[in-house]
Design a protein around this nucleic acid. Structure first.
Length: 806
DNA sequence: AGCACGCCGACT
DNA sequence: GTCGGCGTGCTC
């Protein structure tokens, strides 16, 4: 009985976002498996496209509803690249995130497995001598691109109509494996003995070769090792000719860490708190329970050691472990700790690797050669077959939500996979997101707390500097006298300092230099953004607009102006202020090159500099024992963002960066400069009081009806014509409104902050809601019913639980 | 996405 | 009269 395969084709449109049925050719029947990539003919011209096999079933009836099935052309993989789990996950996620199923599968796989399409012309009938030589250059095929370049495209299309040449579609991928050439000895020890005896005495190189082959005792060795013995490839070739050995190709993995030595480490003794957390997690591992834990541990409390020991338990049971970090390039120390503890069993996936390196790491996981995966967001799709634990470190980080389509959140995926594998999910953070903390209060998650630092060192002492006061005393520089003094003190003591330049988002807003006032929207309680194009202040939520104030509405001062600072400028100022200081600057400019992060961090670690000056990227999980001072140059920038999470983000950032101080023997200090030192986010960060901040912020979120009390959906529309875009979004809103309950709150429609990009006008609507049973379905209907308009240049996008509003 | 079918304007 | 414009609809 013939087999049928259900296939998701690589045609990202709504109409094709479902499986298509194909006949499995007889010769493929024994090898085809669900999860493989295939090449299938698709559409009128039966052009070849890539597809994913999502189901295989026997053909029960000759042809059920009059559809004539086509046959699969070929397989692209010898083994499946997607597991049944990932196929199901991709389907669920595409629905949840309003994106196409193929796109989901493509994001799950390394980029080299993405299809590459080639169009080419093939001679199928006799052609004239002129065509053969001038168009095809003597060959019997020519690629579309080549034909286009040489200007022969028209002629070829003509020939195609005459059926003299055919157009063919080729599907390939960029997959490459790195191969090394190895030498295999072919004779026995005794036989080599004889060969040596028979060699003429002047054949020195050959003698060397034969005795080396003899030493190998039948094992293979790379050509490189022969070269080390000063045996050239040519010498080996002579050996091949004489039948002493042969050259073979062997696949090797590109190892991005090949030149790093990892000293093995053993489990450390756990503190009482750590043990308690570990036992709870371990219980879930042993019971195979899909419990979600929120591990809230202050900076330096040893969360990583708890992760490591939990993973060790998982490995003991023969299962795999998945560990997510915000961005590996920024946390080389974390990778180091994992490699040191679990050695070869660790696969690392992050954006700093080349496509080939990523593919090799991915294959190690697929072949179950590595059971511990450490990586950034997309590693949540690692093809581990039996997962025993999933950990998301720094769970509050926004990098876990992908900003492009498909807009998935790694935390949601983690929980999905945790349920599938019946394993615990651990969300770790010193400053959990309000959403997660609230879920812990409602006992959806289990809260585990680490309130003491592992080295028993107390948290650093934090001092606030009121920059308004500083200005009054005539100091208009970026550095307060206290911060300058403290920096000089560290220099004298030969201790190190970390300076944070807060540039989150660097959205422009106005701030009063005398009283710290930031202009807020009267309707939305978030700061308004400066728009130089229209010379107005705008609210990104509701579209409220007003003039740029020239006098501070709060204190009538004239010092109200645009606020922002660049790293390079600060570095120059700092160097002028303390000429003897050795400074490392870390920002997008100095870290653009591959491996630059590691190099700079390493240099700082070796004490080649006194001060590490950088943006957000220096705030995360770094552990430098010699750092005793952390300075925050401008705590306010992140407060001024037009985002209801700006206080939360500021609190998190200040807490994270403060935690970099005093991790060694010596006690740490923190100096925070601010124009708003009385702001609760800054005050609670100073006191290291997460719980108080949480209570206060939850109260405010409740009052202003934001997350976690309300969910959010963002609908955006864009068009080259401003009127069309505006009209359409209003129309779509009218379509959605009837299914909304009275509880739902609609904000907008409003033009987007950068209202026009790429000559398109953008409008958006936010819907805040608690429970809307029909909303998701209605939005899918909206996408379905607007296909014609979408084809005509109207873009519609839906962002489920967006993290930003800009 | 890409290809065919189909119904209106300027041409051998 | 036709060649070809791209609007519309479908792809196992």
């Amino acid at each position: 009985m013939p087999l049928l395969a259900e296939i998701i084709v690589d045609v990202p449109t709504l109409q094709t976002n479902k499986p298509f049925t194909y006949i499995v050719p007889e010769e493929l029947e024994p090898i085809i498996t669900v999860g493989m990539r295939v090449v299938v003919p698709f559409g009128k011209g039966s052009r070849k496209v890539q597809g994913f096999v999502v189901d295989i079933k026997p053909q029960k009836f000759p042809m059920d509803n009059g559809i004539e099935w086509k046959r699969i052309s070929s397989l692209m993989d010898p083994l499946p690249v997607l597991t049944e789990e990932l196929i199901k996950l991709g389907k669920d996620l595409s629905h949840k995130t309003f994106s196409f199923q193929v796109k989901m599968y493509q994001t799950m796989l390394p980029a080299v497995l993405r299809a590459k399409y080639n169009k080419k012309f093939i001679i199928s009938d006799e052609v004239s001598e002129d065509v053969l030589w001038n168009v095809f250059k003597g060959r019997n095929e020519i690629s579309w691109d080549e034909a286009e370049e040489s200007g022969k495209l028209k002629q070829l299309i003509e020939l195609n109509k005459e059926e003299k040449v055919q157009i063919e579609y080729e599907v390939t991928d960029k997959k490459t494996s790195k191969k090394v050439r190895i030498v295999r000895p072919l004779l026995s020890f005794e036989q080599y003995e004889e060969v040596i005896e028979d060699l003429p005495s002047n054949a020195k190189k050959q003698k060397l070769l034969v005795s080396f082959l003899q030493q190998l005792e039948g094992k293979t060795a790379s050509i490189e090792t022969f070269k080390e013995q000063s045996i050239s490839t040519q010498n080996i070739n002579t050996g091949v000719d004489k039948g002493w050995c042969k050259i073979e190709e062997k696949e090797v993995y590109r190892d991005p860490f090949s030149d790093t030595v990892f000293e093995p480490t053993v489990a450390l003794d756990l503190t009482a708190e750590q043990s308690h957390a570990f036992n709870q997690i371990n219980q879930a591992i042993q019971d195979k329970r899909s419990e979600v834990f929120l591990l809230k541990g202050i900076t330096g409390s040893g969360k990583t050691e708890v992760y490591l020991q939990a993973i060790a338990e998982v490995l003991d049971k023969g299962l795999g472990a998945l560990m997510l970090v915000p961005e590996i390039a920024l946390t080389p120390q974390m990778v180091h700790r994992f490699k040191s503890r679990f050695g070869e069993n660790v696969a690392v996936l992050h954006s700093g690797l080349s496509e080939g390196e990523k593919y090799d790491e991915w294959r190690k996981i697929e072949k179950e050669e590595a059971k511990v995966v450490v990586g950034a967001r997309s590693s949540i799709f690692a093809p581990l077959k039996n997962i025993g634990i999933i950990i998301i470190d720094e769970e509050h980080e926004t990098t876990y939500k992908q900003e492009e389509f498909p807009k998935y959140h790694a935390r949601d995926v983690a929980i999905w996979r945790g349920q599938y594998h019946k394993c615990p999910v651990v969300l770790g953070s010193a400053t959990p997101s309000l959403e997660s903390r609230a879920r812990a209060t409602k006992q959806v998650y289990t809260l585990l707390e680490l309130s003491k630092r592992a080295n028993n060192q107390s948290l650093p002492h934090v001092r606030l500097v009121d920059m308004r006061e500083e200005a009054k005393t005539g100091n208009h520089s970026t550095f307060s006298s206290l911060l300058k003094e403290e920096l000089e003190k560290r220099l004298a003591l030969n201790e190190q300092s970390v300076l944070l330049l807060n540039r989150r988002g660097y959205s422009s807003f106005v701030l009063c230099r005398d009283c710290g006032f930031v202009l807020e929207c009267p309707n939305c309680d978030i700061s308004q953004t400066l728009h130089m194009d229209t010379k107005t202040m705008k609210c990104h939520y509701c579209g409220h607009e007003e003039g740029i104030p020239s006098i501070c509405p709060s204190c009538t001062s004239r010092s109200i102006r645009y606020y922002g600072t660049g790293t390079q400028k600060v570095e120059e100022e700092l160097q002028a202020l303390i000429p003897s200081a050795r400074i490392i600057r870390m920002d997008v400019d100095t870290t653009r090159k591959k491996g630059a992060h590691e190099r700079l961090f390493h240099s700082f670690e070796k004490r080649e500099a006194d001060i590490l000056l950088g943006t957000q990227m220096i705030a995360k999980g770094l552990d430098f024992p010699n750092v005793t001072l952390v300075g925050v140059i401008n705590a306010d920038t992140s407060l001024g963002l037009p985002d209801f999470r700006s206080a939360e983000k500021t609190f998190q950032l200040l807490t994270q960066v403060s935690g970099r101080s005093g991790r060694g023997e010596k006690k740490g200090e923190v100096v925070i400069q601010s124009y708003n030192p009385e702001h609760y986010a800054i005050q609670y960060a100073k006191k290291h009081d997460y719980d108080a901040f949480y209570k206060r912020e939850m109260h405010l979120r409740h009052l202003s009806e934001y997350s976690p009390y309300y969910f959010l959906i963002k609908l955006s529309v864009s068009h080259t014509n401003e009127m069309t875009a505006a009209k359409k979004i209003a129309e779509y809103l009218e379509f959605i409104k009837p299914v909304l309950s009275k509880q739902a709150i609609v904000l907008g429609p409003t033009p987007r902050s950068i209202a026009r990009t790429h000559n398109r006008y953008h409008f958006q609507v936010m819907i805040k809601y608690k429970r809307e049973v029909e909303l998701e379905q209605r939005l899918h209907e909206l996408l379905q019913s607007t296909q014609k308009e979408q084809a005509k240049g109207l873009y519609i996008s839906i962002d489920y639980q967006p993290l930003d509003f800009i």
